[in-house]
Write a protein that binds this DNA or RNA. Structure first.
Lengths: 337, 337
DNA sequence: CGCTGCTGATGATACGCATAATCACATGAG
DNA sequence: CTCATGTGATTATGCGTATCATCAGCAGCG
């Protein structure tokens, strides 16, 4: 079913059909209400929808949002991370009446997925949301140069032209420090992940700023996962009463380790996690922690992308958004007053 | 970057570029190795990729697999059901080098999602995988008539022309009956869901065939969810020693109810579930059950779709596939010998 | 030399849509 | 009556690609 067929059925020209569909009512393009109605009737009868390929070729957008994940998104291992994001992406897309084009094809034989290898398969989508912990800065820069509309999920301050929607870890970590200080803690240890990701820097910055503000004693150690024992010793040496553990899994491990030594959390040591893993064991301790608004991140990224695509990027639009994290008070931060 | 630009750079015509890209070597379309190489060089330098929209318009496919879910796919409530399916879909698509177009836009204000409302947004995909418990038979029939390539996940025997990949529930239920009989059970009750879905009929058929084969006493009751108590009474009246519960959640409830009455499972009553819910509480009883190969279903559906799309549907291809379920022996089926 | 057959490449066209340019016609003013 | 004006529709064109038909050139052969 094409516009030409519709036109024949309605006894008009193809152009007339296109005009009716576009809904424009300029002075340059005029149609009488009668013919307009005739065309509309046929359109309705036939359930016609314009061929998106042809629309695209003619320079129109199709309400298709691209989704690029730097790893496979659905498998159980990855789904903890991606599922809430995709939930938000999907619901925002649904609100916008947009479909999602997931670029699953871009796996290179060994390395991570690469976006630009895809060439212009990208162009089928009107814009693209980028998900993943480890994005290639070079690719982001090339996307900017191509003037391809996209939004990264997660803070990406490296290139000032990269639009992103991220979680405001700094503030949330600051709040947790406030809470610890309010409860009488004056010696704090921060256990950082040995990554150099944006979010890692962000959390640490929040910690440093807040401890400085309160003038409390703080110390930062960098620890790989699985070193709960070493971490516990580090803390003891410093004499901290609370540890801020960046990796939530590691926080659980630390709690388990402390308790396995016959000490108690938070009586002997308080533990705060700067994140949350989805597969939290229901039976595990309710660790005091921050929770990133993952579903909101996905949804907001799509909405921002929609704004960018609609051409409203007249400087007035803020293309770098931080959403607040929430705090779960939990039961592992003692009151030392 | 277009073929015309490539052509200018290589000093040939646009048609030549297209011919090189197509890789054909007919007698009707000839290019000297020299020019071919020249074009290839330019193509390589520029990282050119054909515009999928134009390709599509010119009648070519784009390696895009459509995915239609009859409900939102990612939210936690639905993700139990969809996540494993999508995992399979994604990995098979990745193997095929295909991208996934997810039709999230087709929500009607109240009712379920409708596929054909989408009109030809569908056509951007070369074919489509349909996921969901409740598909509209009319829509499937229309898709067949449109000769649009698609594959349904889940048995759909209503219309003989509908290709599907489903789980072989009948055989698996039969095996479970075999197991129960082998363990000395002679009076069996089947608690069916009050739906008229294909899979429901399939499971019941397997039960009926197997009990008939063994010549044991069987009885079928239809029970809505949440009626564990009534179900338990039904079973007692009949004097069955084992209940086959179609709804896995209901099976858990039944076990809990029996035990709350001071009776034991499987000592006083055996319970077999004809399915598995993903959110199984780790602490809950390890119910004897069958497990549908959901990830395999998704992957196989995409592979079948790929075969259909490539035009190999010369009757020789089986477009209706049943994959075997696996059996988890669990601990709720007693040995009565 | 004229014809055929072959090779290597190009021109033309269609795909379905959006849109600028154009046209037919009626109406009113001069 | 003629010309400007406005209205309602159509024609023409371009988007980028695939492909068929065509063409120029050249060699072989009678």
């Amino acid at each position: 079913m094409t516009q030409r067929r519709i036109a024949e059925l309605a006894g008009v020209s193809q152009a007339a059909v296109s005009l009716v569909l576009s809904g424009r009512t300029d002075t340059t393009t005029r149609l009488s209400d009668a013919t307009r109605q005739r065309v509309l009737d046929v359109l309705h009868e036939t359930n016609y929808e314009a061929d998106p390929a042809a629309r695209s070729l003619a320079g129109k957008s199709n309400n298709i949002v691209g989704v690029f994940t730097y790893e496979s998104a659905f498998p159980a291992e990855a789904s903890d991370f991606y599922a809430p994001l995709l939930t938000g992406v999907e619901s925002a897309a649904e609100e916008l009446g947009a479909d999602l084009l997931m670029f699953t094809s871009s796996r290179t034989h060994d390395g991570p997925r690469r976006l630009l290898r895809e060439g212009s398969r990208l162009r089928l989508a009107d814009g693209c949301v980028l998900l993943g912990r480890h994005m290639d800065a070079g690719e982001l820069a090339r996307l900017v140069e191509l003037e391809y509309p996209f939004v990264a999920v997660g803070r990406r301050d490296g290139d000032a032209r990269v639009p992103y929607v991220g979680a405001d870890y700094a503030s949330a970590v600051g709040e947790l420090v406030d809470l610890a200080v309010a409860r009488g803690h004056t010696k704090l240890t921060y256990a950082a992940l040995p990554f150099d990701a944006e979010s890692t820097r962000d959390r640490l910055a929040g910690f440093v700023a807040a401890t400085r503000k309160h003038g409390v004693s703080s110390r930062v150690v960098t620890r790989s996962s699985g070193e709960a024992e070493k971490l516990a010793r580090d803390v003891d040496v410093h004499g901290s009463t609370v540890v801020f553990v960046e990796d939530p899994v590691e926080a659980d491990r630390l709690v388990a380790h402390i308790e396995s030594e016959g000490r108690a959390v938070p009586r002997d040591l308080s533990v705060v996690a700067l994140g949350e893993h989805a597969r939290r064991d229901e039976a595990a301790r309710d660790v005091t922690r921050l929770v990133a608004p993952r579903t909101a991140l996905g949804a907001e990224a799509v909405r921002l992308l929609a704004r960018i695509m609609s051409g409203e990027v007249d400087e007035s639009i803020e293309t770098r958004v931080l959403l607040p994290c929430s705090i779960v008070e939990g039961s592992t931060l003692a009151d030392r007053r």
